[in-house]
Protein backbone atom coordinates (compact mmCIF):
# COMPACT_ATOMS: atom_id res chain seq x y z
CA UNK A 1 0.00 0.00 0.00
CA UNK A 2 1.20 3.50 -0.64
CA UNK A 3 2.79 4.96 2.49
CA UNK A 4 0.79 8.22 2.55
CA UNK A 5 -2.50 6.31 2.31
CA UNK A 6 -1.38 3.92 5.03
CA UNK A 7 -0.44 6.88 7.26
CA UNK A 8 -3.86 8.39 6.64
CA UNK A 9 -5.58 5.15 7.66
CA UNK A 10 -3.38 4.60 10.73
CA UNK A 11 -3.98 8.11 12.03
CA UNK A 12 -7.68 7.93 11.18
CA UNK A 13 -7.83 4.91 13.47
CA UNK A 14 -5.85 6.72 16.16
CA UNK A 15 -8.10 9.78 15.87
CA UNK A 16 -11.23 7.63 16.04
CA UNK A 17 -10.23 5.71 19.14
CA UNK A 18 -8.33 8.08 21.41
CA UNK A 19 -10.38 9.73 24.08
CA UNK A 20 -8.85 12.82 25.62
CA UNK A 21 -6.06 13.30 23.05
CA UNK A 22 -2.46 14.10 23.98
CA UNK A 23 -0.81 11.31 25.89
CA UNK A 24 -3.88 9.07 25.58
CA UNK A 25 -2.83 8.23 22.05
CA UNK A 26 0.74 7.30 22.92
CA UNK A 27 0.07 3.57 23.50
CA UNK A 28 -1.74 3.24 20.14
CA UNK A 29 1.11 5.06 18.38
CA UNK A 30 3.61 2.71 20.02
CA UNK A 31 1.70 -0.29 18.74
CA UNK A 32 0.82 0.91 15.23
CA UNK A 33 3.92 2.92 14.33
CA UNK A 34 6.73 1.36 16.38
CA UNK A 35 5.83 -2.30 16.87
CA UNK A 36 3.76 -3.27 13.85
CA UNK A 37 5.37 -1.15 11.15
CA UNK A 38 8.78 -0.26 12.57
CA UNK A 39 8.47 3.25 11.08
CA UNK A 40 10.15 4.86 14.10
CA UNK A 41 11.59 3.74 17.43
CA UNK A 42 10.22 4.56 20.87
CA UNK A 43 12.94 7.16 21.51
CA UNK A 44 12.06 9.04 18.31
CA UNK A 45 8.38 9.07 19.27
CA UNK A 46 9.25 10.62 22.64
CA UNK A 47 11.31 13.29 20.86
CA UNK A 48 8.38 14.09 18.57
CA UNK A 49 6.20 14.47 21.62
CA UNK A 50 8.68 16.84 23.22
CA UNK A 51 8.80 18.99 20.08
CA UNK A 52 4.99 18.95 19.76
CA UNK A 53 4.66 20.29 23.27
CA UNK A 54 6.76 23.37 22.65
CA UNK A 55 5.34 24.28 19.26
CA UNK A 56 1.96 25.99 18.91
CA UNK A 57 -1.15 23.93 18.29
CA UNK A 58 -2.68 20.73 19.57
CA UNK A 59 -0.14 18.19 20.81
CA UNK A 60 -1.68 15.09 19.26
CA UNK A 61 -2.09 16.79 15.88
CA UNK A 62 1.48 18.10 15.99
CA UNK A 63 2.80 14.64 16.81
CA UNK A 64 0.85 13.18 13.89
CA UNK A 65 2.20 15.84 11.51
CA UNK A 66 5.76 15.24 12.68
CA UNK A 67 5.61 11.43 12.42
CA UNK A 68 4.00 11.72 8.97
CA UNK A 69 6.74 14.10 7.82
CA UNK A 70 9.53 11.87 9.08
CA UNK A 71 8.07 8.82 7.35
CA UNK A 72 6.91 10.25 4.05
CA UNK A 73 7.83 13.96 3.75
CA UNK A 74 5.25 16.70 3.26
CA UNK A 75 2.80 14.27 1.67
CA UNK A 76 3.03 12.07 4.75
CA UNK A 77 2.61 15.06 7.08
CA UNK A 78 -0.59 16.16 5.34
CA UNK A 79 -1.98 12.61 5.15
CA UNK A 80 -1.39 11.96 8.86
CA UNK A 81 -2.86 15.31 9.92
CA UNK A 82 -5.94 14.82 7.75
CA UNK A 83 -6.40 11.28 9.05
CA UNK A 84 -6.19 12.51 12.62
CA UNK A 85 -8.74 15.32 12.04
CA UNK A 86 -11.38 13.48 10.05
CA UNK A 87 -12.97 11.34 12.81
CA UNK A 88 -13.46 14.42 15.04
CA UNK A 89 -14.95 16.38 12.15
CA UNK A 90 -17.44 13.62 11.33
CA UNK A 91 -18.42 12.85 14.94
CA UNK A 92 -18.76 16.45 16.11
CA UNK A 93 -20.63 17.60 13.00
CA UNK A 94 -23.12 14.79 13.53
CA UNK A 95 -23.53 15.67 17.22
CA UNK A 96 -23.79 19.41 16.47
CA UNK A 97 -26.61 18.73 14.01
CA UNK A 98 -28.71 17.09 16.75
CA UNK A 99 -27.42 19.26 19.61
CA UNK A 100 -30.45 21.54 20.09
CA UNK A 101 -33.07 18.81 19.67
CA UNK A 102 -31.14 16.68 22.14
CA UNK A 103 -31.09 19.41 24.79
CA UNK A 104 -34.85 19.96 24.63
CA UNK A 105 -35.48 16.88 26.80
CA UNK A 106 -35.79 17.91 30.49
CA UNK A 107 -34.03 14.76 31.66
CA UNK A 108 -31.05 15.52 29.43
CA UNK A 109 -31.05 19.08 30.75
CA UNK A 110 -30.86 17.91 34.35
CA UNK A 111 -28.10 15.48 33.46
CA UNK A 112 -26.10 18.13 31.65
CA UNK A 113 -26.55 20.66 34.44
CA UNK A 114 -24.75 18.11 36.62
CA UNK A 115 -22.22 17.30 33.89
CA UNK A 116 -21.37 20.98 33.48
CA UNK A 117 -20.28 21.07 37.12
CA UNK A 118 -18.22 17.96 36.33
CA UNK A 119 -16.52 19.77 33.44
CA UNK A 120 -15.66 22.72 35.70
CA UNK A 121 -14.19 20.26 38.23
CA UNK A 122 -12.07 18.69 35.47
CA UNK A 123 -10.82 22.09 34.30
CA UNK A 124 -9.94 23.14 37.87
CA UNK A 125 -8.13 19.84 38.29
CA UNK A 126 -6.08 20.50 35.16
CA UNK A 127 -5.17 23.95 36.47
CA UNK A 128 -3.96 22.32 39.71
CA UNK A 129 -1.95 19.76 37.75
CA UNK A 130 -0.39 22.43 35.53
CA UNK A 131 0.42 24.52 38.60
CA UNK A 132 2.27 21.58 40.16
CA UNK A 133 4.19 20.90 36.96
CA UNK A 134 5.14 24.40 35.91
CA UNK A 135 4.97 26.87 38.79
CA UNK A 136 8.21 26.25 40.62
CA UNK A 137 9.43 29.75 41.51
CA UNK A 138 8.11 33.23 42.22
CA UNK A 139 8.18 34.20 38.53
CA UNK A 140 5.81 31.31 37.86
CA UNK A 141 3.48 32.39 40.66
CA UNK A 142 3.56 35.95 39.34
CA UNK A 143 2.90 34.89 35.73
CA UNK A 144 0.02 32.63 36.78
CA UNK A 145 -1.83 35.32 38.73
CA UNK A 146 -1.07 38.20 36.39
CA UNK A 147 -2.40 36.17 33.42
CA UNK A 148 -5.52 35.23 35.34
CA UNK A 149 -6.17 38.82 36.45
CA UNK A 150 -5.40 40.45 33.11
CA UNK A 151 -8.06 38.29 31.48
CA UNK A 152 -10.64 38.41 34.25
CA UNK A 153 -10.45 42.12 35.03
CA UNK A 154 -9.18 43.75 31.85
CA UNK A 155 -10.36 41.20 29.25
CA UNK A 156 -6.93 41.43 27.67
CA UNK A 157 -6.27 39.14 24.71
CA UNK A 158 -4.61 35.81 25.66
CA UNK A 159 -2.29 36.37 22.69
CA UNK A 160 -0.72 39.40 24.39
CA UNK A 161 -0.41 37.44 27.64
CA UNK A 162 1.32 34.49 25.92
CA UNK A 163 3.77 36.71 24.01
CA UNK A 164 4.75 38.65 27.14
CA UNK A 165 5.04 35.50 29.24
CA UNK A 166 7.41 34.06 26.63
CA UNK A 167 9.51 37.24 26.65
CA UNK A 168 9.70 37.26 30.46
CA UNK A 169 10.66 33.57 30.44
CA UNK A 170 13.41 34.18 27.87
CA UNK A 171 14.78 37.21 29.77
CA UNK A 172 15.03 35.25 33.00
CA UNK A 173 16.54 32.27 31.21
CA UNK A 174 19.28 34.44 29.65
CA UNK A 175 19.94 36.04 33.03
CA UNK A 176 20.20 32.60 34.58
CA UNK A 177 22.59 31.46 31.83
CA UNK A 178 24.85 34.50 32.21
CA UNK A 179 24.87 34.01 36.00
CA UNK A 180 25.88 30.43 35.40
CA UNK A 181 28.84 31.55 33.31
CA UNK A 182 30.02 33.95 36.01
CA UNK A 183 29.85 31.43 38.81
CA UNK A 184 32.27 28.58 38.25
CA UNK A 185 30.51 26.45 40.80
CA UNK A 186 27.36 26.23 38.69
CA UNK A 187 24.11 27.90 39.51
CA UNK A 188 23.34 28.78 43.06
CA UNK A 189 19.69 29.40 42.33
CA UNK A 190 16.79 27.04 42.58
Amino acid sequence: METALELFIVFFRIGAFTFGGGYAMLPIIQREIVKERGWANAQEIMNYYAISQCTPGIISINTATLIGYKINGIKGALASTAGMLLPSLIIITTIAAFFQIFFDYPLIQYAFNGIKIGVIALIINIVIKMWKQSVDNWIGVFLFWISFLLLTLLRLSPIIVIINAAIIGILFQSKRLSNKKIQDEGDGEK
Binding site: M130, W131, V135, F144, S147, V161, A166, G169, F172, Q173
Partner: peptide, 14 residues
Protein backbone atom coordinates in the same frame (compact mmCIF):
# COMPACT_ATOMS: atom_id res chain seq x y z
CA UNK B 1 13.15 29.85 28.63
CA UNK B 2 10.13 30.93 26.62
CA UNK B 3 8.24 27.82 27.69
CA UNK B 4 9.12 28.32 31.34
CA UNK B 5 7.26 31.62 31.05
CA UNK B 6 4.41 30.36 28.87
CA UNK B 7 3.50 27.32 31.00
CA UNK B 8 2.48 29.16 34.21
CA UNK B 9 0.72 31.81 32.09
CA UNK B 10 -1.31 29.12 30.28
CA UNK B 11 -2.27 27.65 33.66
CA UNK B 12 -3.49 31.14 34.66
CA UNK B 13 -5.43 31.48 31.39
CA UNK B 14 -7.16 28.15 31.94
Amino acid sequence: GGLSGIRPAVAGLI
